[in-house]
Amino acid sequence: MAHLKAALSRTLQLALVLWAVVTILFLMFRLMPGNPMAAYIDPTFTAEQQEALMAQFGLDKPLWEQYVIYLGNLLQGELGQSFRYREPVAERILALLPNTLILTFTSLIIAYAFGILAGAYLAWRRGSAVEKVAIPIVLTTRAMPEFWLGMVLLAIFSFWLGWFPAGGTRSAGSDYGGFWGLYTSPDFLAYLALPALTLAIYSQGLPLLLMRSNMLDVMKEDFVTMARIKGLSTWTVVVRHAARNALLPVMTSFAIAVGYQLQGNVVVETVFSWPGLGRELVRAVSASDYPLAQGAFLLIAVVVILMNLIADLLYSLLDPRVSHA
């Protein structure tokens, strides 16, 4: 019963947040200055065309009516039609989502794998010279603007050394016949390398520092001391006991990191000509393509909200002390 109630209140909360984000989005796009029709100004652009366009996209209706229509459409999973591309927004952003997700997850997996190992190592080597040098370096990588890092990597590894291609997801004109064919091809991996590396360098700091401090915590706990007393080797203690317990909270932070990363992709996708959701959002915003920008924004927001929820659930699952208060 208590579980059911908790689940119900969770769902309600989720619905409230979604509705609020949707409403904020709608208002943000409709109340801002700038006319979406400005994109079509051309010497042959006539008054009739302007009116027809306004009517086609429902912009001639009063604001509240537009809002009601917008909400109604959303409930049916209808995101409207892009001003610029004249095609359903949903189709377009869903076509781009896999690219963005692949980039996000690849970079995060690299970042977490490295961060966890390095974090554990640094905890183990606490107080050593390595640690003294490593921590400031890690902090510094988190202080770099992603696009700057991306441009520098691009200049070094692509323009100068020529190891990796400069942009896109595959070589020109190549056909891998479908989803898996592409994503498992070596060609794709070569294109993925630099953007994923850029994002990974940027995001390894969080898991690293988290892992390290958790390890330090865990290593002070009784069972570790016990293990030590039992005469197990330091390595066994660190890996078998401490690391396993320190790992769980780090994995929780993965969910939140997915949400954050998805937003950060915007910039890196532009640097590496990566056909993803973030770049589309930027382009749609600068072209005043409201439906498309709203759709892309909403999709990112939904992922962020879901990831927050997953992190919350994981957290309460792993740490029974956190109640539903």
Partner: peptide, 8 residues
């Protein structure tokens, strides 16, 4: 928390 910051 539900609003993606950079897009915003």
């Amino acid at each position: 928390f539900g609003i993606p910051f950079l897009p915003f």
